[in-house]
Design a protein around this nucleic acid. Structure first.
Length: 209
DNA sequence: CGCTTTTGACCAGCGC
DNA sequence: GCGCTGGTCAAAAGCG
């Protein structure tokens, strides 16, 4: 798993190692103020234009900065649900406890694959699926089944390139991999990364070997 | 029998 | 203020 972590990076390591297409893990390095991550942005346009895809993924942990990010994220809490609703269903007010916005690094990368589910050695449980506006393919939400491991992952296939799957990891695993990541390593080799210039990525050649 | 997937509904943030 | 979009939950179904 070491390598895993290393690859994803921590952004601290500038990709100076090689100018050639390195992995496009958008490291976190948020500006502190958690701007809404890829909210509207061009999103679908991934095809061309500047390398940044997901723009900045939040992740900075500077809580000490004072300006704590809007904790509003935690839904639930009072939920202010009208009494009526309560009768029907306890609403979603499941988690009252604010998770504390622990720094949750996000790493996104793209792969060329026929299947959405890449076996990275961890066990994931799907907890949702939603159709996004610009993509005809739905986005799937996964969560690591390991207890205490809050890592989430979302997988989405680009409509413009059905062969491209965008995977976004959120958080870091606090437990060892269950399976040999040998397989995952293999996947890494096929990771495509096109940092924006269309010409470059094409060199990916097939991964079906 | 246990776990995973599926699916609809709900909720919060943002844009208009 | 309303509507849209995205993210999550939870109940039920499905599969090994």
């Amino acid at each position: 798993m070491e390598n895993y972590h290393m690859l994803f990076g921590t952004s601290t390591q500038p990709p100076s190692s090689t100018t050639s297409n390195s992995y496009n893990f958008l490291g976190a390095a948020g500006g502190g103020t958690s701007s809404s991550l890829m909210r509207d942005h061009d999103r679908g346009q991934a095809g061309h234009s500047g390398g940044s895809f997901f723009a900045e993924l939040s992740g900075n942990s500077n809580k000490d900065g004072g300006a704590s990010p809007p904790a509003a994220a935690v839904r639930g809490d009072s939920s202010a649900g009208p009494a009526a609703a309560e009768a029907d269903r306890p609403a979603v007010a499941g988690k009252r406890k604010g998770e504390k916005k622990e720094r949750r690094p996000r790493y996104a990368f793209q792969t060329r694959s026929q299947v959405d589910i890449l076996d990275d050695g961890y066990r994931w449980r799907k907890y949702g699926q939603k159709a996004v506006k610009n993509n005809k393919f739905p986005r799937s939400y996964y969560r690591c089944t390991h207890q205490g491991c809050n890592v989430k992952k979302q997988v989405q296939r680009l409509s413009r390139d059905e062969g491209v799957v965008v995977t976004t990891y959120e958080g870091t695993h606090t437990h060892p991999i269950e399976k040999s990541n040998d397989n995952f390593e293999h996947i890494l080799t096929q990771m495509q990364i096109y940092s924006g210039m269309g010409s470059n990525f094409s060199s990916s050649h097939n991964m079906f070997h």
